[in-house]
Write a protein that binds this DNA or RNA. Structure first.
Lengths: 263, 263
DNA sequence: ATGTTTATGATTACTTTTGATTATAGACGG
DNA sequence: CCGTCTATAATCAAAAGTAATCATAAACAT
């Protein structure tokens, strides 16, 4: 086998398996670890993979993220904490629905840790991150691609949602308010969210503190429609109390918090 | 044999076998290794092959992004020509359906040239390539992700297809035969292809010559179900005649052919 | 026919690839 | 924070492959 052939097979191997250790590749391709390391270095230069200690992972997971028109890069760590906390409400074997959005996207690495999961989503970006996870059954919701958010929305999506039933839906929003409920800028996207909530036994809203008391254009539900709201510890105390008194179950994912042990 | 003849045979050999070592080529063509190396150098200058230590591999396999679980990387240039030719059957404003597959994937760069198109597809890979094209309305077919081929298939996909109607469907196949019809290895994928053909006013099959007279596991249609078969100029003459006599409209996309000027 | 150009094969010097070895750097647990 | 362990980079020698050179033979032009 030529070096170039081996390199292309290594790249393929890593992309398909999602990873590849130096030792593993060395025995698979019957060359020394030195050679594997040299190959990995070159493949990394070509931006095909990303090296790690002990091996390499596909580049795409690093590559993909931006291209988001609605690229809210603020409150990154808050969103991560919210996603981590949310993971505690997922059990092996669950069928879960994940809405598109920057917060929900952080669920991807958490989902990968499960060994048996069915994930339904309308997020192209999430799909991208999970597409090579062999332990996850992925169901893509069909419909029209909204390029600004890389979300699949519209009547086709709504139609499919009417025929599906999931355990838990993780929904994102642009605004949550007691008076105006849950709101988002796009009418069609709002409608799709409405159907998402309808087909789930339980709805969990993921929204960092910046969304609190914000009102966007189109309403897709009220606070009474959600079973739980997971947010971060920068949420002002008085807002927490106001929503609590109104009957909303708020979970605060703070930095030192451990993951809840399943609902 | 003239040097040029030998060179073109070497190039063909490498492309069809996917590789060729200097020693192997030297014994096959009964010339010294020096001569083979000289030939390979010239072929590389012409961008027909890529040299490696010990031999050479096809140029396309280097060029093509290997992020595909799908293996078939052979006959790249044939597939490109088929896709280019197929582009001639697309008009501005059309609503077209594109099946997943390595041949159909080559349609992506051609579609980008249009300024008003609606593309319906079940191919994750195609979707990825088009997702930021603002002049294309993209409709993703929903359903389960089949990881081996990165195609969306299954009952949900079929259900959506029953509610859609498109101008032209571009379908890929693993085998086309007069007796066994159109066949593919996966049962569920076959069913989805069947629905695809059903919802299109016109069905165009894209299949390079290597698919001719091949029979795979599951049949999704007969040659009578397609309106046109676009293939490459390596299709043996007798196969062309056999299919033509049986009433199949075959278009051969050869290297010197200009693009047809819309159906 | 004769000199010139071109293609080819053989020979030799050089380059690349590879695996082994050793020194350095990074990760991990206490 | 530290020592220990493992992974990596750097180095080197052997093997494999290649480029450069030259001589011969064939094709070509005058």
């Amino acid at each position: 086998m030529f070096g170039e052939e081996r390199k292309s097979m290594i790249s393929k191997y890593i992309i398909e398996h999602g990873r590849g250790s130096v030792l593993e590749l060395s025995t698979t391709f019957k060359v020394s670890e030195s050679t594997i390391r040299r190959d990995l270095k070159e493949l990394e230069d070509e931006k095909l993979i990303k090296r790690t200690h002990g091996g390499a992972i596909p580049f795409e997971s690093v590559n993909f993220e931006p291209t988001f028109g609605e690229k809210e890069i603020r409150y990154q760590s808050e969103k991560e904490r919210i996603a981590l906390y949310s993971g505690g409400f997922i059990q092996e074997g669950d069928i879960i629905l994940i809405d598109s959005g920057t917060t929900t996207l952080h669920l991807a690495p958490i989902l990968k840790a499960f060994s048996n999961l069915t994930v339904v989503t309308n997020s192209m970006t999430l799909m991208e991150q999970l597409k090579n996870e062999s332990n996850i059954d992925i169901v893509m919701l069909g419909g029209s691609l909204r390029q600004e958010t890389q979300a699949i929305v519209g009547p086709i999506t709504d139609q499919i949602l009417q025929t599906l039933h999931v355990d838990t839906a993780f929904i994102a929003t642009n605004g949550i308010s007691l008076s105006a409920g849950l709101t988002t800028p796009n009418l069609i996207e709002a409608n799709t969210k409405r159907y998402m909530m309808k087909c789930a036994k339980r709805t969990i809203l993921l929204a960092d503190h910046s969304k609190a008391e914000k009102i966007s254009f189109s309403q897709f539900g009220t606070v009474a429609d959600i079973d739980m709201w997971i947010t971060d510890d920068h949420l002002p105390k008085e807002i927490y109390q106001k929503f609590s008194e109104a009957g909303t179950e708020i979970h605060v994912a703070n930095s030192h918090h451990t993951i809840p042990t399943v609902s």
